[in-house]
């Protein structure tokens, strides 16, 4: 019987020990929720427009660099001086 009480008490103590940990987790969760991110842009899909704009710029830049590369290649083949 005595043993039973001890196990019960230790059981409840272990629960109590968990409580601060639980509170901490809740706290961090709420703290995380407060951090503002571009959730609206994500929910209404406007972030995709930003991505599209940046991809367009990137593609344009690469096409430009590629065209310069081709021009130089042509000059190298012609072996002409400047």
């Amino acid at each position: 019987m005595g043993k039973n009480i001890v196990t019960r008490i230790s059981f409840w103590f272990s629960r109590l020990a968990l409580l601060p940990a639980l509170l901490l987790i809740c706290n961090t969760v709420t703290a995380q929720e407060k951090v503002e991110m571009a959730d609206t842009m994500r929910s209404n899909g406007k972030i995709y427009i930003v991505v599209a704009v940046c991809v367009t710029i990137l593609v344009g830049l690469f096409i430009y660099v590629m065209s310069i590369d081709r021009k130089i290649k042509k000059m190298e083949k012609e072996k002409t001086d400047f």
């Binding site: 972030i47 995709y48 930003v50 991505v51 940046c54 991809v55 990137l58 690469f62």
Partner: peptide, 11 residues
């Protein structure tokens, strides 16, 4: 890689 950066970097 840069295409991947822009797309995954934003999304």
């Amino acid at each position: 890689l840069l295409l991947y950066t822009v797309i995954c970097g934003f999304l």
